[in-house]
Design a protein around this nucleic acid. Structure first.
Lengths: 241, 241
DNA sequence: TGAATAAAGTGTAAAAAATACACTTTTAAA
DNA sequence: TTTAAAAGTGTATTTTTTACACTTTATTCA
């Protein structure tokens, strides 16, 4: 086997959307870059960044994205969707990113092309753990993403566009709601992702017609006001294009 | 600058759809791999493949795709759309592709991740010229793609899906019709790409409603039967998401 | 010049989908 | 039993989609 030059040049980055039902917020999981143990001469300015990593020589792209996700969240089996490949020759050459590259990359000058993925998760289902590169892990409102390392702001933006485009056809809501949920929960989710408001009655008609929901004949319990009917998603046949 | 290991690992591949108006066929441009000048021991079995190449160290991905396209067709300014990144660690490790890799790659065992693009062109607008890797250049009906090198069959398949998905919203027809065209030409194009048949009247209603066409007040000339009204696409404002 | 040919051109009715809109019911707490 | 909070529910209108067939026009050839 030849020298392992592959590993320098391809990375994956993950945009992990976390849905917080309690306040109906959509957030993005970011890491805060870690300062090295022994301080370097220049003060290290930690930036926020997407979780990501170089792809190992023998590792598939999807697999690498899963690994990154798993290392961070200890959750497996989330559906990751590849959405774009960012490869500007200058994308890892900005001054602001220099320090971090010097600290963590065997070849800090290497050009890196990154393949990006997004996924969705219920925020309360995971307790992210900062990995080796990260000092901290934070959720940031998807509408107010701070300046990020590299070209990560562009990546988050594109991930959001893709998410909104596929929300309906991909049945993404299934990944973000509990198994049993109310129509209101479903509507809240759509409203926060698409950043709109729907009329209750019209909103439901769509799902009724498409026959994706099952009425479970159960109701919510232990809440202050009128409990709502619970629904689930129908199991769908594996018939697609 | 460090040693140039980038160039081994990232390629672009282009799915070039050619539209032949005269027989209403949609075709894909393939190269036939070239046998080396001095024959190697084993007989070289030429495969068909997508035009593509390794990305240069200082070159953007889009830029590389444009270069590949230009080298092959001598046409510039076509709109290339990135649609997926294929990175299976085994994608260039099949026995059938060994010979070609040995002949043309400085590091035939290197793992290569490929970023894929598709574009559309009126077939008669270009006369493709085989480049350095290619013995020949051929158009193949998009519905009957022969077995290709590497994972190129999967790439073509996905390109087709993406094309069909974006045909309407991306106004792709604009790239495949002459400046002045008849409604029948427009319909033929849609029919061959989507592989369906439309009712003439209903088909047109959509465009009338969306106000993307301009009636030019001219008619076809010099044909045997009733000449049709000519249309053009409206210039569109640069307002999009 | 008129008959034949080939494709262009054209409208309407029915069904389905999307939208706008407001009051009643249910539950638990006070 | 009153109150608070959210669930639940129906209809009329508009828009969009679909289905469907005959007439008109320009040209070619007897």
């Amino acid at each position: 086997m030849k020298k392992n030059s592959f590993k320098k040049h391809i990375s994956v980055d993950c945009v992990i959307f976390g849905y917080d039902e309690s306040n109906n917020k959509l957030e993005v999981l970011l890491i805060e870059q870690k300062e090295p143990a022994k301080k370097s001469k220049n003060a290290f300015t930690a930036q926020f960044a997407l979780p990501g990593d170089l792809v190992n020589e023998d590792e598939g792209l999807d697999e690498a994205a899963e690994r990154v996700l798993k290392e961070l969240t200890h959750v497996e089996g989330l559906h990751l969707r590849q959405f774009y490949c960012f490869g500007d020759p200058m994308r890892v050459k900005q001054e602001k990113d220099r320090e971090w590259l010097n600290l963590y990359r065997s070849d800090p000058d290497a050009r890196v092309v990154t393949v990006t993925y997004y996924t969705l998760v219920r925020k309360e289902m995971i307790r992210p753990i900062p990995g080796s590169f990260a000092r901290n892990v934070v959720w940031k409102n998807a509408k107010r993403i701070p300046p990020l390392a590299f070209d990560h702001n562009a990546i988050v933006k594109k991930a959001g566009e893709d998410l909104r485009k596929h929300l309906d056809s991909d049945l993404i809501a299934k990944e973000l709601l509990p198994q049993k949920f109310t129509l209101r929960q479903l509507q809240n989710l759509y409203e926060v992702i698409l950043n709109t408001n729907f009329d209750k009655r019209n909103f439901i008609k769509r799902f009724k017609r498409d026959e994706v929901l099952v009425e479970l004949g159960e109701k919510q319990k232990g809440l202050m006001y009128k409990p709502a009917q619970l629904y689930g998603f129908k199991k769908q046949d594996k018939a697609s294009a």
